[in-house]
Design a protein around this nucleic acid. Structure first.
Length: 365
RNA sequence: GCUGAGGUGGCGGAGCGGUCAAACGCACGAGACUGUAAAUCUCGCGUCCGAAAGGGCUACUCAGGUUCGAAUCCUGACCUCAGCA
């Protein structure tokens, strides 16, 4: 049976879903009411950051990250696997990956180690609706042997994560319907036999879903749909398929056709702050067709040619920005560098993505 | 009217004899951004030819002059600002 819903503490959410990144328990530049305004149904928070910057005591006092934020949508917590890559492997923070976990030094004298077990334990404290196992990110530049090492470690960590998950759930007396989902993550880079092997091994361990991990973009900037297919073809039908960090609107549409039904990405929020808005090529909501090749275009708000433009950014959009303000006003806000520019742009881009999900649900049903 | 300071690209502002089509900033234009240590970063920005490397032309208020060579020195004109009348 193909999954139809993502079950959250606050009710079922129809698939597919796109959860923007609220890495540090906030979607950058907007608050929870803004987020609700965009009809966004869930968010992704991050273990690595919140573990270090928030801590378990606050979570215990508030009863989880959702209550802390007063957000009533779905919540997925990422394991920190990606941060291990971006932070340690990029050399910004000293650290290394061992079989035990990710060892790093936030300052010269301190040492922290994020193990698969700790990641799960903290994610349970977050009280998210889906926990993600810690994985060893396959560097896109890896050769076959290096990729294989990351796959083996990922599988081993996934096994430990699952064990820890079951242990904690038992200890807390969480029955099958009270537990969060647990997601395995496939690695293996562009090597399809490794992807297939990783997927099959993770399925043997048993998860509620599998994620397409690693870096899905090649040197030319093209999306690796081959790996997406390999993962989808080797995953049971009743699993969630999660495109981690995916992606551009057209990539989401294609991955959804391959069976992927969960997505998160920083693009809409980061692009918004950087002055790139997504605009449907349509004059009304009804006219939007996400299966057309060029169903949207980018809009750069802070251009001189818009300084006196009293029209809305998009006629097809019903977000706060498009309903209430003109292109000229948004251009002004960007020009003077007021945070409101980033806020309105973020609200708009998130509404773009939530509309995208609404349209995909219609075509899937 | 007198005295002093000054006039540089769309703007602010360096440069004060050659390495200057002119630092730096702003503005403007183009691009990037994919499980967020990015409200960030990159590039362009006199003009013409060239895909590029590169080359041509016109330029530092205007008019003369000195010099192999001037945004830079000299003379004059015009204008701006400050102080005094």
């Amino acid at each position: 049976m193909t999954k139809k819903f993502f079950k959250s503490k606050n009710g079922n959410i129809s698939l597919p879903i796109f959860f923007p990144d609220a890495t540090r328990a906030v979607v950058r530049s907007i608050d929870t009411s803004d987020l609700e305004e965009t009809k966004t149904q869930g968010i992704l928070v991050n273990t690595f950051h919140l573990w270090q910057e928030l801590g378990g005591d606050v979570l215990k006092k508030f009863g989880g990250i959702g209550k802390f934020m007063d957000f009533k949508g779905g919540i997925i917590s990422d394991s920190g696997g990606f941060q291990v890559m971006s932070v340690i492997k990029s050399g910004n923070v000293k650290g290394k990956i061992t079989d035990e976990g990710a060892v790093f030094h936030p300052t010269k004298k301190t040492k922290k180690i994020l193990t698969p077990e700790k990641s799960i334990e903290f994610q349970i404290k977050l009280e998210s609706d889906m926990v993600v196992v810690l994985d060893d990110f396959t560097d896109p530049k890896s050769n076959y042997d290096e990729a294989k090492v990351s796959v083996e470690r990922t599988i081993s960590w996934a096994r430990r994560s699952k064990d820890e998950f079951l242990k904690i759930c038992d200890r807390k007396g969480l029955g099958k319907n009270e537990r969060p989902y647990i997601l395995g993550v496939t690695q293996g880079g562009k090597y399809q036999d490794l992807r297939e092997y990783c997927t099959k091994e993770l399925v043997k361990i048993g998860f509620d879903g599998l994620g397409y991990g690693g870096w899905p973009i090649d040197e030319k900037g093209d999306f690796d749909f081959e790996s997406a297919k390999t993962i989808a073809n080797n995953t049971p039908e009743d699993y969630f398929l999660y495109g981690l960090g995916v992606g551009k609107p057209e990539e989401i549409v294609k991955c959804n056709e391959l069976g992927f039904n969960v997505f998160d990405c920083v693009l809409p929020t980061r692009d918004a702050r950087h002055g790139r808005l997504y605009v449907y090529d349509a004059i009304s909501m009804e006219e939007i067709d996400v299966h057309n090749p060029n169903f949207y275009k980018f809009y750069s708000p802070d251009k001189e040619r818009y300084f006196k433009d009293d029209s809305p950014v998009s006629d097809a959009c019903d977000c706060l920005l498009c309903k209430r303000y003109s292109k000229a006003y948004l251009a002004h806000l960007f020009r003077i560098g007021d945070f409101t520019a980033g806020r309105l742009a973020t609200i708009h881009n998130l509404r773009f993505y939530s509309i995208l999900m609404e349209k995909l649900r219609l075509t899937n049903s």
